[in-house]
Design a protein around this nucleic acid. Sequence first.
DNA 1: TACCGATCCATAACACTGTCTTCAATCAGA
DNA 2: TCTGATTGAAGACAGTGTTATGGATCGGTA
Lengths: 211, 211
Amino acid sequence: MPRPKTHDLALRVRLLDRAGELLSGEGAAALSLRRLAADVGTSTTAVYSLFGGKPALVRELYVEAFQRLGKRLRAVVPTGDPADDLVRLGIAYRDSALADPHLYSVMFGATVPGFEPDDTATAQSRAALAPLLDVIRAGTESGVFTDAGGTMAMACWGLVHGLVSLELCGNLPPDLDVATTYEHALRANTAGWTRRQSTVVDQVVPADRVD
Amino acid sequence: MPRPKTHDLALRVRLLDRAGELLSGEGAAALSLRRLAADVGTSTTAVYSLFGGKPALVRELYVEAFQRLGKRLRAVVPTGDPADDLVRLGIAYRDSALADPHLYSVMFGATVPGFEPDDTATAQSRAALAPLLDVIRAGTESGVFTDAGGTMAMACWGLVHGLVSLELCGNLPPDLDVATTYEHALRANTAGWTRRQSTVVDQVVPADRVD
DNA sequence: TACCGATCCATAACACTGTCTTCAATCAGA
DNA sequence: TCTGATTGAAGACAGTGTTATGGATCGGTA
């Protein structure tokens, strides 16, 4: 029949690898289809036959990025102290982002115009945060945290993502000891979700959180 | 001498206005110099003679965005309750972002490749957060907050930015009551920075924050 | 063995982008 | 009226993502 296929799974992997390298090494601007195809030794057509276009290729990187994040978070083994586990998860989150900043920007920043994660991709991203949900559930069940219907997970994710985002965008003072400050912020946030001794009435805590 | 100038300050304002409209109405992809020039009734040269290029034009939008944010934050008049003021500042921050999502993305997201805010632009952005610093200073001086060298401001900024960013990226569950959840998160974070009664020893609070 | 036809994919075209150069249009002063 | 400096629109250039085309390649058939 026809000529043998060269747009196969192996080429697909090589394209993804090289795309990740370009993104991590030289940023989003360096990731052009012509450059990518030339580096891998094929033509731009390969991206269209194997993925469907540049946004679809970036979608794969998006999934890959969240899988790496999930791997790092799962590597944080619970110690039984939910508050401490929560802080350690936050630190692992930052480590993951700093290890591959451009890949992190694919997850949230609009690195590539026209790319919008679809539902299945979003679901995969949510799955990466399972360790966070586990720790919060454990802490809530043991009475350490006072979560109110999933609110706490969103708050924790927002905090770590926001801080990491500010750091990567260069919005933090250059002379700042980020690691220490970051951990301080994590501990303060954790403390805010921590149940206080019931005999103490702290006026600053809103009424709907005291039970 | 020469022909009369039409690349003047009035045209500059019109270009900025239209650029903001394009960004807010149709997103970053719609902001091309040819489209912009045609809409305003000039040529792409105007952007180069008046700004210096597309990144420089975006820089102006960056400054404009932070000025709008600063205006919203300054509109929050302190009540004397620093904890409550802090939460209200956070809500104003989100309102500002939701009012013009694409302008918000210029502040942090890499909306336009090649655009990096310079030092003066960064300084202007920092100035927009002055109300936040004021409230934290007031709360610290009155003994309500326990800040440790500017850490608290970064944490608060990180939290609001992170939550808003997740919301704008569509990373939050669609059926979530974001406003309520958002305020919960703000109150919890605020509580974490609130000084507790000195007689209570809370084991979850790290030792370096108890003084 | 020679041919054929189905299949694959590199090449090239298209419409767009930001940027830079060219040069005709313009108007004050001589 | 002529000159000459200056302005800014038009066009060139190199790049982008995407798509249409047609040559190259092989198995099955005559």
